[in-house]
Simulated assay, not measured.
Amino acid sequence: MAREVELKFIGADYAALRERLQAEGAQSAGRHLERNAVYDTGEGTLRSARMLLRLRRRIWADRTQALMTLKCPPAGAVPAGVKVWDEEETAVADGEAMHAILTGLGYRPAFRYDKEREDWSLRGVHVSLDRLVFGEVVEIEGPQDDIRAVAALLGMTGCETSTATYHDMNRAWRKASGVPPCDDFMFDDEEVGRILDGLRHPA
């Protein structure tokens, strides 16, 4: 399995961050909408094993892509201060067919979540500017030392960092905000329409 190493940064100024990315020669892959479903058995077998099985649909202005991902606890020693998974991921031709296969095997969506993501690449590190129901989070993925170096280069050393999953961040936000508990964190239909319109007709 491939090793995924990442760290989240909270409180970044996105307008200033985009300027720094451009000034440093980062390559932009544009924005897209992500719609995710995380699957498990009714007994929560995968969650108990700290495994994640996810079907993701990525939507751009001119195309869509479905991705199937399995994340597992990392084997062997892992660096401290970052989130680490062992991961396998592959594109699938038909997301609906994949959903039917998973449900046919006894898996069900345990929770669903949406994300508006803007992707950049800089010095071999992947920088994602994410917007979710509960706020904006920058996710940087790459070798541990490179994550910190790129964050410093982009002026993010003062940002709060987190190794929490978005699922856990949603739960914490709901508790702190007095919002009723819910594992799903999805944009409403109006917001999805606004995002899709913005992808098709960028300002």
Rank of each mutant, 00 (worst) to 15 (best):
F185T: 05
G193R: 15
I10H: 02
V192N: 05
L67D: 04
L196K: 14
M68L: 15
L52H: 05
G25D: 11
E88V: 12
G30N: 06
A203D: 13
R117Y: 06
Q144I: 00
W60P: 01
G155H: 11
L132P: 00
P180K: 12
R171A: 13
D62P: 00
D184E: 03
E118W: 04
D197A: 15
R3W: 02
C72D: 00
R20H: 10
R148T: 08
A100P: 04
G155W: 09
L129C: 10
R63S: 15
T157F: 08
Q65F: 04
R31A: 13
R3E: 06
L199S: 13
H201Y: 10
G30T: 07
A93P: 01
M68R: 03
E116R: 11
R131M: 07
I140T: 04
S48V: 05
Y166A: 13
D168S: 15
N36M: 09
G44P: 03
D13K: 06
R117L: 10
E87L: 03
G135V: 08
Y107I: 03
R194S: 15
L7N: 02
C182K: 14
R31D: 01
V125Q: 05
D145Y: 00
E191C: 02
I10W: 03
I101N: 00
K175I: 09
P73Q: 10
L52N: 04
W120S: 07
V133G: 00
G11T: 05
R108Y: 09
R171K: 15
V133N: 00
R174Q: 08
L153I: 08
G155A: 12
M51Y: 00
A152M: 09
E139V: 12
K8Q: 12
E190G: 13
P143Q: 12
V179R: 13
F9V: 06
W60R: 13
Y39H: 06
G178A: 14
F111Q: 02
I195C: 07
P143G: 09
A164L: 12
E96Q: 05
Y107Q: 01
T161N: 13
D145K: 13
N36Q: 07
K115C: 05
S177H: 14
A15K: 09
H32V: 00
G76V: 09
A100H: 08
D145Q: 12
A49H: 03
T64I: 11
P109S: 09
A152D: 14
